[in-house]
Computed example of a mutant assay.
Amino acid sequence: MLAHANRITTADDYRGVVRRGTRLVSPNAVTYLRSPRTEQAGASEPRFGFIVAKSVGVAVVRNRVRRRLKAASYTMLDQVKPGIDVVVRALPGAASQPYGVLCQELAASLRKGSALV
């Protein structure tokens, strides 16, 4: 599980990353990356946020997709540059994909966005 310091928790932070961040599209998710935050306290930790809309499926399916994305981000936490904010928006196809595929897509998006160390 992601520590509190590694989670995006406020609507303003989500909005800032989605509106002003770099957008990377993969088959099952859209990943938004925002460059390091230097003006905020605690900017040394990368932070992740997840958006799983009702179009992905019923609540059980949405929660499973969110848990898989959280687990994938946790495994890559030590490879992400400090201060980067990442928001992952799951697309409807993510519900039918295994954990390995979601993990590979997230890693590819982070690599493409130069968010990895």
Rank of each mutant, 00 (worst) to 15 (best):
A3C: 09
H4Q: 13
H4A: 14
A5I: 07
N6M: 03
R7A: 04
I8D: 01
T9Y: 01
T10L: 12
A11I: 03
A11W: 01
D13M: 05
V17G: 04
V18S: 03
V18F: 01
T22K: 14
T22A: 09
R23K: 15
V25T: 14
V30I: 14
Y32L: 03
Y32A: 02
R37E: 15
R37A: 15
E39H: 12
G42A: 09
E45W: 14
E45S: 13
P46H: 10
P46I: 08
P46W: 12
R47S: 03
F48T: 03
I51M: 10
V52T: 06
A53P: 00
K54H: 05
K54N: 11
S55P: 00
S55H: 06
V58P: 11
V61L: 10
R62I: 02
N63H: 15
R64P: 11
R64V: 00
V65G: 08
V65N: 07
R67V: 00
R67E: 00
R68G: 04
R68E: 01
L69Y: 09
K70M: 09
A71S: 15
A71C: 13
A72P: 06
S73D: 00
S73I: 01
T75M: 12
D78S: 15
V80Q: 03
V80S: 05
V80D: 00
K81I: 00
P82E: 07
G83M: 10
G83W: 07
G83N: 11
V86I: 15
V88R: 05
G93N: 10
A95G: 14
S96L: 07
Q97I: 02
P98H: 10
Y99M: 06
V101H: 08
C103Y: 12
Q104T: 12
E105Y: 14
A108T: 11
K112S: 11
G113N: 02
S114G: 04
S114M: 01
A115F: 00
A115S: 03
L116K: 13
L116Q: 06
V117D: 07
